[in-house]
């Protein structure tokens, strides 16, 4: 690995931004579907069929179709004394979890779409999509930011960190505390909470319970398990 992965398929949306999912069952034998490009043999061979492989295959099929219908129009024109105007697709380099990725994006592509649909980092969640839930929280240059309301193209040259980087052999103390305190129920909002908790603890290592309640106000849990979240974050503070 030279540290750069190439990912060329794009978010399958039409010119109005509507995501067009397709059912590959209806496309079997249809050579324009191109569903094989996104499926990975390792996942398919173990169970024969998995939900994620199905979704990836169908979205890649739609992506391929969308690209056929809307050919790459990358035209970056130089104007205004050096201010570059980008229209259509452009290949940019994003630094995610210390690895550089080349991705093909439109100006309207959000960071969340790139992370989930191109880089397969599905930790950040598309819950509210306008940022009101906090479920898509990631760290950009160490600051907690909602990937759903951030343009991918504006993230070039910045260090993006997702919840996936908190795992590994020596996991971050925030997710460990969440596990220990059974901090959440359905788990859909958890990655956003964990990233927000990490950012909060970096800034307030000796936070009180009241400060934690204030600090994690940007995240919403519909199961209502806030009590355990606060205990988890409290235990991860220097005092706890």
């Amino acid at each position: 690995m030279e540290g750069v992965s190439q990912s060329s398929f794009t978010l399958p949306s039409d010119s109005n931004g509507v995501i067009r999912m397709r059912d590959p069952a209806n496309e079997s034998g249809n050579s324009t579907g191109g569903g094989s490009s996104g499926t990975r043999s390792s996942e398919n061979s173990s169970s024969g069929f998995s939900r994620r492989a199905f979704l990836r295959g169908s979205s890649a099929a739609a992506a391929a179709a969308a690209m056929v219908a809307r050919p790459e129009t990358a035209s970056a024109q130089k104007a205004n004394q050096g201010a570059e105007v980008v229209s259509g697709f452009k290949t940019i380099t994003l630094s995610v979890n210390v690895q550089k990725h080349q991705v093909n994006v439109e100006p309207r592509t959000t960071l969340l779409e790139v992370l989930r649909y191109q880089l397969d980092l599905t930790g950040a969640k598309p819950v509210s999509q306008d940022g009101s839930s906090g479920a898509s929280t990631v760290l950009i240059d160490g600051r907690p930011v909602m990937a759903s309301t951030t343009l991918a193209i504006a993230c070039e040259g910045k260090q993006i960190q997702t919840v996936e980087s908190f795992g590994g052999a020596q996991p971050d103390s925030a997710p460990v505390a969440f596990v220990q305190h059974d901090a959440q129920q359905c788990g859909f909002c958890t990655p956003g909470f964990v990233v927000a908790a990490r950012a909060f603890l970096d800034k307030h290592p000796h936070a009180t319970e009241e400060e934690i309640r204030q600090g994690l106000n940007g995240n919403i849990c519909r199961c209502g398990t806030y009590a355990n979240v606060i205990q988890a974050v409290l235990s991860a503070t220097k005092g706890g």
């Binding site: 931004g17 201010a83 980008v86 229209s87 439109e106 100006p107 309207r108 504006a154």
Partner: peptide, 11 residues
Amino acid sequence: MKAFDYAAPRT
């Protein structure tokens, strides 16, 4: 989201 042109000027 409707497609748009994008620029990030410096001045």
